[in-house]
């Protein structure tokens, strides 16, 4: 008889679930709102919406462990997770953890803002053409104001949004200390406009949306990372 183990990365908008049942391993994703309604038991959690008073592991550690696993112990790599709310990154150098950061508030409204804007203007993120120009997004509120100004100046909505996404990509690259290559984790792995915009500055390789939850599992079951 095997026992089901369930680990979750409860993000601001989406909850990533990893279920382990013996040799069987399944990854699922549902909206955090829906997940809350299911009242599913879980063995451990990471993510902004996780209940931090119980069974919780912080997201940067989960990212570090997940990246280590998915990249098979990288020698040199910068892994950036960018989702609905914030950006966090870890860097490995000579096979060891070297540096990290996590933006907390200013400039942190990222994926959720893009989703809201696309819904508001009825634009499919798959149809956003990457733009050479960018809208600065150090402050999300000022960034949104610029989008509205552009649209009011007859710039097509999808172009204005693509410039905003380019701004987020540029901000991400700067925040991660301008690496030569970024291994990308999180919801923006599905946003081609973001990926192509980020490629103006560095190489990009996507790791998908399950890096943190994989890292949570690895953290709880494997050996510990050290500087």
């Amino acid at each position: 008889m095997t026992t089901l183990k369930r680990y979750i990365d409860a993000g601001t908008s989406w909850t990533k679930i990893l279920e382990i049942n013996g040799d069987d391993k399944q990854a699922k994703i549902i909206s955090t709102k829906d997940f809350a309604g299911l009242n599913l038991a879980y063995d451990n959690a990471t993510g902004h919406m996780a209940d931090k008073t119980r069974k919780y592991q912080n997201e940067v550690l989960s990212l570090a462990y997940g990246a280590k696993k998915l990249l098979n112990n990288p020698e040199n790599a910068t892994i950036v997770d960018i989702g609905s709310r914030d950006i966090k990154w870890v860097k490995f150098e000579n096979g060891k953890y070297r540096d990290l950061d996590w933006n907390g508030s200013c400039g942190s409204v990222t994926g959720a803002t893009v989703e809201m804007l696309c819904k508001f203007y009825g634009v499919d993120t798959a149809h956003l053409p990457p733009q050479d120009e960018l809208i600065p997004v150090t402050c999300g509120v000022f960034g949104m104001e610029k989008i509205m100004d552009e649209i009011a100046s007859n710039v097509p909505v999808n172009v204005a949004l693509a410039k905003y996404i380019h701004g987020i990509a540029h901000n991400t690259w700067i925040f991660a200390k301008k690496p030569r290559k970024i291994y990308l984790s999180g919801g923006f792995c599905l946003n081609n406009c973001f990926i192509e915009s980020l490629k103006y500055y560095c190489e990009v390789e996507t790791l998908g949306r399950f890096v943190l939850v994989e890292g949570l599992y690895r953290y709880l079951t494997g050996s510990r990372l050290k500087r």
Partner: peptide, 16 residues
């Protein structure tokens, strides 16, 4: 200190 600030310090110490 926000949760993010606390968590990144915690991660820095645990990875340190």
């Amino acid at each position: 200190a926000s949760n993010s600030a606390r968590a990144k310090i915690e991660a820095f110490i645990k990875l340190g």
